[in-house]
Every structure is written in C-alpha cells, then in structure tokens.
Write a protein that binds this DNA or RNA. Structure first.
Lengths: 217, 217
DNA sequence: ACGCCGCTATGATAAAAGTCATACAGCATG
DNA sequence: CATGCTGTATGACTTTTATCATAGCGGCGT
C-alpha cells in the first residue's frame, strides 16, 4: 500500500506537504478489519488515531444489556479517535468495522508534533473537531427531543442525501442498513424500528422494495 | 473591569503571554447577563466566542413544543462557542445565563490568528474541544441507553462531585437546581423528574431537606 | 431437500415516560 | 392581606417505547 497517498486523501492531512506526509507514513502502520471486527473498545488506553483508507467504521457505546448507540460513522478519507491525541485520555467509544476496512494507525506524538511545527494543520484539526461537535449536538437534540419515528426519518434522509438519486417519485437509494443497524443509530431496538419503518410506508412517506428505499415527497 | 486578568483566568488562554493577552483584550468587550437572559440563539450568525468572567451559562437546544435539552453548562474560567471560530458556522446551540453573569466577547479572527502565530495555544484549544467531545459522548450514551432514574442519579452525583462535602451520612450539597432545571439536563420533563426524585428518596438513596441534598451510601 | 442463520414482521403485553389537572407552599409586591 | 408568581407534589390517564413470543422468507452449505 502507498501510505503517503493514503494519508494524503484524509481530510485531516490536506494541508500537509509531501515531505510531512512522508514523515508521517514512516511511523504509520496498516490495520485490516473484517466486518464487525472491533478495532478498540471504549476505555482502552490510546496511543494514536486511525485514518480510514477504505471501508467504514462505527463508533458506539453500549449498555450493560447489550444495546448499542452509534455516535458516528466514518468513511474513507476520515479519521477516528483524533481527540485522544489532545487530551491524553482513553478511547471514548468502541469502534468496529461496518464493512471490511483498511486503516492506518498514526502515533499521537507525531500528530502533536505537527500541530506545533505547522499551525495550519492544527486549524484543520480544530475544524474537524468542530464538525464532530456539531453532529454530536444534533444527535443529543434528536435523542432527547424527538421520538423514534422522527429519528428514523432523519437517518433515512441523511442516507438519501449521502447516496440517493433524485427521480420523479422522490429520492431513491439502495438500502445498506439493516433494522438492527438503523436501531443502533436512532437509539432504539430492532422491533420498534421495524414497526416505525412499516408505519412510514403505510403513511406513504417512503416506499421500500427489494432493498431500495424511495423517499416520497 | 480588568480585561487582561479576566482573560488570563480562562483555561483556553492559559498558555498565553501578557502581551498576547493585552492584544486580545483590546478587541474584547464586556457583556452582562441577568439570569435566564439569552446570549444568542442556535443558528445565529457567529462572530466570536465568549469567555465567562463570572456566573454560569447553559447551552441548550429546544424542541418545537418548548422542551429544552441542555448540552453543557459552563462556569467562570471557561469559554463558550469556541467551535464557531474554526468551522465558520452559526452558533450550534442557544446559550442563556443560569445566574447573573459577566462575559467577554472575543472576535474569532483574533483567535484564529493566535492559533497560527502561537501553536501551543492551538493545542490548548484542541484539548478543550476534546474534553467537550467526551462529555457529549457521555451525554449521548446516557440519553440513549439509560432511563430517567439513572440519568437523574448521574446529574446528582455530578453535582455532589462539584460542590459536595463528605459527611458520615454521605455526600451533602446545597440544592442549586430546580426540578425544571434538572429535567432540562436529563432530557425529561418537570413532572417526571419530580417523581423520580421522590422515588430516590423513598428508596433511601438520597435525602432532601431544606434545599440540601444528601447522597447516602 | 434439509436444517441453520440472519433478517424481517407483527401481535400481545408490560413498562417507562409524558400529559393533564389539581392542590399547595413560599414569597415578593402593591 | 389579596394577588400573582414560581416551584413542588401527586393522582389519573394516555402515549410511546420496550419486551416477549411467534412466524415467515431467502441464502447457504452439507
């Protein structure tokens, strides 16, 4: 794998020069994950962050009885667990692969050094953290103030926005998430999510057929 | 007001030299808030951040039917809305005074300039954002995976930790939050919170008398 | 074909949370 | 001292969410 060009594709490293990327690549090492394989668990000691080269991963917390709440899902070009570089804490969430994925580990000291040596990089990091904070704020509002049906609708709209296509009937996209996965995003359980999906169809807000979802106007 | 020493007391600015603080102070201006007065609302265009000089403020989101969910509460020495400096977005939450407060507004360009000119400052900012992210992750887990009673217990424990005193009976602290305020933190309503509090007393996990709460072992 | 697995669907029921109505205590104010 | 305001407490009820049980479908390997 060409580590330099893999790093270069990450948003976090966009402001860096070739030389800086080469330097980072020296200490970076590859990690492959099969679907649902766990990268690290919440509370584990953290020595660096991960760049997603391909695939996607989810960061989640779980309750004693096994329920999961996804905090965020990150795809190729993004990084995971950046915050542990800056506050010396443990990993704040468990991270697992949503699909088969390839990642690069980067030591936290290398990142700190970059911040000190090359301020534009720090600004990029701050920008990414800001976006993460905004999304978390959204999630908090959603979980606290909206009910399951609305939360589900929000996730579907986000999916539509991410990889849907406009058609005369509405926005169409391939269904990539099982009820279980949807449930973990909206903070509910499989059963309830299934019912909510059914009701959205009954109310003709969406149509599902053959792993394809259409969001009707 | 001595703006320089007010700024100096803020965690965000701890790494700065006298000269840098003086520079910041030039553009900073004071804002006084009475209890519950709104500083800004979610979605408003943002030109800078605020340093809390005295008092405390809450950042919250609200639903169409007026329910509030507090994202975080900040006190003297901390800053609010730092993230708008780095991602050019609008204010992510509504902020209002929990008690009469004094704040200092600081223009976002001044902060960006500091990041570029003085990297240790950027690291401090990153550290603060990291801590904020961690707390948000906690809140998400709590809202999604725990029920009202547990969430209430968590807030009470946090309060105890913040300003409680160990006694033979348990940790004692002055009650500063009304049921309404507690409800806004745990993502519920006044009625339900009142009931949950009553049940915690019945189960002898806490004792309340005369605006004093004791957390029993 | 058969069982097994993962996923979906749905009815019955229970538990949690929210809503509504009412009552009351403390307190400042005219 | 009546009035209004804020906050608390609580019963009765509804809605939402979760749990449990059951059944079905399609793919896959033996």
């Amino acid at each position: 794998m060409d580590k330099v060009s893999a790093l270069k594709r990450a948003t976090l490293f966009q402001s860096l020069e070739k030389e800086q990327l080469r330097e980072l690549a020296l200490s970076a090492h590859e990690r492959k994950l099969s679907q649902n394989e766990i990268l690290f668990s919440a509370g584990e000691e953290a020595h660096g962050l991960f760049v997603i080269v391909s695939g996607s991963v989810r960061a989640y917390r779980e309750s004693v009885d096994g329920r999961e709440q996804i905090l965020h899902v990150e795809r190729a070009g993004f990084t995971i667990a950046e915050l542990i570089v800056f506050d010396e804490g443990t990993y704040p969430a468990t991270v697992a692969a949503e699909e088969d994925s390839v990642l690069l580990f980067v030591d936290k000291q290398a990142i700190r050094k970059l911040c000190l040596d090359y301020p534009p990089f720090a600004l990029t990091a701050l920008q990414l953290m800001s976006q993460r904070l905004r999304r978390h704020a959204e999630l908090i509002e959603t979980l606290s103030l909206r009910e399951v049906r609305q939360r589900l609708a929000q996730v579907l709209l986000a999916e539509a926005h991410r990889h849907g296509k406009r058609t005369p009937e509405g926005i169409v996209f391939a269904r990539e998430l099982s009820n279980q996965q949807l449930a973990a995003r909206i903070g509910s359980v499989r059963d309830v999510t299934s019912r909510a999906l059914t009701r959205l169809q009954q109310d003709e807000l969406i149509a599902i057929s053959d792993q394809t979802i259409t969001i009707l106007d």
